[in-house]
Design a protein around this nucleic acid. Structure first.
Length: 842
RNA sequence: GCCGGAGUGGCGGAAUGGCAGACGCGCCGGACUCAAAAUCCGGUAGGGGCAACUCUGUGUGGGUUCAACUCCCACCUCCGGCACCA
């Protein structure tokens, strides 16, 4: 009795079989085997899986299943990054309380994940918005505080005067509030909490060299993000004043060319230094600078504006005095917020000097040329020979030794107390304060007598009695929450109402998975020790910097606290490419749906539509494909197979409905083949068997290699398609062809697990395929009697010959003589690679 | 501007020094059908030739090698990241 391929039916049956047998939970807790921790970046529970998720989790699930079949104790968890703005926005729009909203979305997501057949151990599940989870964020925060790794300082925020609220960057559109399009966002300074990531900058950058299992591009992005630069701190005394201005420079070799000095507009010394008569002008200048958005301010193409403070400083190297400016091109949050300006050797200083009529003094010249200020059109930033630089004249400014002017000048500064060598990082401390409700409350109390006091009782629970309709941080509207007693002196005090950045949640969730139900500690160190580090982490490259740096930072801090053994959380990282589809764009109606385009014209306005720009799937570009629809039409196995087949995992994937059909056809052919095998009688062995047996074992070898070495599921699937073709060409129901089918199913199990499991059952196999062993190839079956090898003459193909793989050069030459038309009896040179190729030079 | 990655049939892609285009999609032809869909079989880089065959071809130009998609040098284009970081 053979049946049709009905994926919907098969998949639900098999999913029930897996869940009833608890096969994945079992695999996840079997301590007798060597562990393999397969981790995927957990999602924000938006309610619907999108194709990006489906690709991410399909790759991960295939890896997890592959490793399980290799006898590993696979830890494969899933959870939800469930704090964040969308839930709060839903609440502001009056839809539902964030808690209710979030848990409803989580349930929808879990349903879809189960429908995809992902083999998670749901016992390890977690949601970061539960007190059971976030209390440990608070616990870590207090530990960080104890060690001076959490501190408070002023920092600018986006402020909407109409909402009376701080806005997240994503709530600011073109410098205006997302809800008040006519209201410009203001910059305001608030006291906020920071984590001291800069304390780990050196280790974060150094350890990258050890991460051999990480893609080079991600490591490079992190190196740049951390931005280590070697230079020096130089101090300049202000004329007729006791103040000293500290600057950071990577070019101490240019100090003799300083012609002015610039402070960032926010620099705390500005107000102290400004000349009384220039105060009003300064305020006006600052107002103008602050009115710009940060994008405008950091636009390199804008002319560099500045304002003289009417005061001078002394360059201790020359004893000369020069003016002090404030300018918008100097940033307060890099280095010391002040720079020594050398227009002759720095392009930005050069532009500023030309614009403001400041002198330019070259002190480094090319070997064969003396620079002239009058003819310079850009700064000279190359290396050369020092001039007008006191005792450093005629030295090379920089070379590979420590005897160059660069080092000599810093040494001189050091001896005189003017400065020292210094390494500066671009990485900044991590601002974790968010003026939001739906996040982890920062567990501190402000007391009039004791100051900042850590909360004693954890968790500090996020209250439910908050108002979303009054503006401001909803958390501040809960009287019960805000008003408390000081844990230290017992007098009335106020709670912190800021909550934590959700990147805190995702910085250690992979450790919580190891012991997700622990109510006495974030985790049992022993449990983390046996599972961490993560063997394979899979996710989007968009998290290359922030998330992956924060998670590495947390892991290092926890390591230093003695809580965990490993210093790096993720041994191997795979960043999957984007899922893309062509877009339809109308000149009037912007992005339109494919259905809104007919005959190349927009159905709304009749304009000619531009079709075909391939873009990342996104709602705004109207080029999404809903995974749910694909499952309904073809089943989860087809979606999985297509995703893995269409492109190698780290490359972008171009969605194609027609190619999806192709994957469906392949699976149906496998299904039909199995049905055919079980309904026909077994025949005796025959002469075709040998080739099929070899093909079977070649396939096992290739699939194993492709998946284990490079996650090349695309070529592994191609090999399985070839095997299927070979079995059908063989056409007989012999022991060998039945074995070939069985091997095909085993290899298909990580890719299309429902169909493979179903067919396994139909073949009458005992036990679950999900727990079966991965096949091993038989080297004997790979042996061949003859091989076809190409015969080349002068590198050009002139024929092929069939020889024994062990044939000698003489044998091959005589066979070749018959196969080609040319006379090859007197070759100049013979290159014979046994069993591979023969090339003759004549 | 700087850093990283990629350029191969009509399309997704394969081959990491050894027969370029595996596998799939699409397309063309055939079988089945009253017909269509589905399915099955065959063909499918381009040029020339009735044909055996032959020439050209992996972004462009050069080089190394018996042999280059693959290695080296220069350039072009596209994608991603960073971007006044002193």
């Amino acid at each position: 009795m053979s049946s049709k391929y009905e994926p919907q039916k098969i998949e639900l049956e098999i999913q029930k079989l897996w869940s009833d047998s608890k096969v994945f939970e079992r695999a996840s807790s079997d301590k007798t085997k060597k562990s393999f921790y397969c981790l995927e970046m957990f999602p924000y529970p938006s309610g619907k899986l999108h194709m990006g998720h489906v690709r991410n989790y399909t790759i991960g699930d295939a890896v997890a299943r592959f490793q399980r079949m290799h006898g590993r104790h696979v830890i494969y968890p899933m959870g939800f990054d469930s704090f964040g703005l969308p839930a709060e926005n839903a609440a502001i729009q009056g839809k539902a309380h964030p808690k209710k909203w979030t848990f409803a979305r989580i349930d929808e997501m879990i349903f879809q994940m189960k429908r995809m057949g992902f083999s998670y151990d749901w016992n390890r599940n977690l949601a970061t918005c539960t007190p059971e989870y976030y209390r440990w964020n608070q616990w870590f925060f207090l530990k960080f505080m104890e060690q001076g790794l959490a501190y408070r300082k002023g920092a600018p925020v986006n402020w909407c005067p109409k909402c009376n609220t701080v806005l997240a960057n994503e709530q600011v559109h073109d410098g205006r509030c997302w809800r008040h399009e006519d209201t410009p966002v203001e910059q305001k300074t608030l006291e906020q909490w920071f984590l001291k990531t800069t304390a780990y900058a050196e280790r974060l950058i150094k350890n990258l060299d050890k991460l051999e299992g990480w893609p080079e591009n991600v490591k490079e992005m992190q190196r740049h993000w951390i931005g280590r630069s070697q230079g020096s701190i130089l101090r300049f005394p202000v004329e007729n004043n006791s103040t000293v201005i500290e600057t950071f420079t990577t070019r101490p070799d240019t100090v003799y060319g300083i012609t002015y000095l610039v402070l960032a507009p926010e620099h705390p010394l500005v107000d102290k230094l400004v000349d009384e008569e220039r105060k009003n002008g300064l305020e006006e200048f600052r107002r103008e600078v602050y009115s710009r958005t940060s994008e405008e301010r950091t636009d390199e193409s804008r002319p560099k504006n500045g304002y003289a403070l009417g005061r001078n400083f002394i360059n201790p190297f020359t004893g000369k005095t020069h003016p002090i400016y404030v300018a918008d091109y100097v940033l307060m949050d890099y280095g010391t917020g002040a720079v020594m300006a050398v227009p002759a050797h720095d392009q930005r200083d050069f532009e500023f000097a030309r614009r403001h009529g400041l002198p330019i003094k070259p002190v480094i010249h090319p070997r064969d040329l003396i620079l002239s200020v009058d003819t310079m059109t850009t700064a000279y930033v190359e290396d050369g020979i020092m001039r007008d630089s006191g005792r450093f004249d005629n030295l090379p400014n920089r070379d590979s030794s420590e005897n160059d002017a660069w080092h000599g000048i810093v040494q001189l500064a050091k001896e005189n107390g003017w400065g020292d060598f210094h390494i500066q990082y671009r990485l900044r401390d991590w601002l974790i304060s968010r003026q939001r409700y739906w996040g982890t409350p920062i567990p501190v109390v402000y007391c009039d007598s004791c100051g900042i006091v850590p909360a004693k009782e954890l968790p500090v629970i996020l209250p439910d009695d908050v108002r979303f309709d009054v503006g401001g941080n909803p958390l501040a509207s809960s009287e019960k929450f805000v008003n408390t007693l000081c844990p230290s002196c017992g007098k009335p005090a106020k709670r912190e109402t800021d909550t934590m950045d959700t990147f805190v949640d995702s910085s250690w969730y992979f450790m919580r998975y190891c012991d997700n139900k622990n109510s006495n500690a974030p985790f049992d160190p022993e449990k983390v020790r046996s599972s961490m580090p993560v063997d394979q982490y899979i996710g989007g490259v968009e998290h290359a910097c922030m998330h992956l740096i924060y998670a590495r930072f947390f892991t290092m801090v926890l390591h230093d606290m003695g809580l965990i053994e490993c210093e790096e959380p993720f041994t191997n990282l795979l960043t999957q490419g984007m899922v893309c589809l062509e877009t339809y764009r109308c000149p009037k109606d912007d992005w339109i749906l494919p259905s809104e385009c007919s005959d190349g014209k927009c159905v709304k306005c009749g304009s000619k539509v531009t079709i075909g720009a391939i873009e990342k799937m996104s709602k705004s570009k109207k080029n999404t494909v809903d995974p749910g629809e694909i499952i309904n039409k073809y089943g989860a196995d087809t979606a999985r197979t297509f995703i893995l087949f269409a492109s190698p995992p780290e490359k972008e994937l171009l969605w194609s409905d027609q190619a999806v059909e192709g994957s469906y056809r392949f699976l149906r052919r496998v299904h039909d083949l199995v049905e055919e095998k079980i309904s026909s009688r077994v025949e005796p062995p025959n002469s075709l068997d040998k080739d099929l047996l070899r093909k079977t074992h070649e396939t096992i070898l290739k699939v194993t290699k492709d998946i284990s070495e490079k996650f090349q599921f695309n070529t592994a699937i191609a090999a399985l398609m070839e095997l299927l073709n070979s079995i059908q060409e063989h056409g007989k129901n012999t022991a060998v062809s039945i074995e070939a089918v069985e091997m095909l199913l085993r290899c298909l199990a990580p890719i299309a697990p429902h169909l493979a499991e179903h067919a396994w059952k139909r073949l009458g196999k005992n036990g679950l395929l999900a727990e079966a062993a991965w096949p091993e190839y038989d080297a004997k079956a790979l042996i061949v009697d003859t091989v076809e090898i190409p015969v080349q003459i002068n590198g050009k193909l002139r024929g092929t010959i069939s020889v024994s793989p062990s044939a000698s050069e003489a044998e091959v030459l005589s066979a070749a003589a018959k196969a080609v038309k040319q006379d090859i009896s007197k070759p100049k040179k013979v290159i014979y690679k046994q069993g591979k190729i023969l090339n003759l030079v004549v």
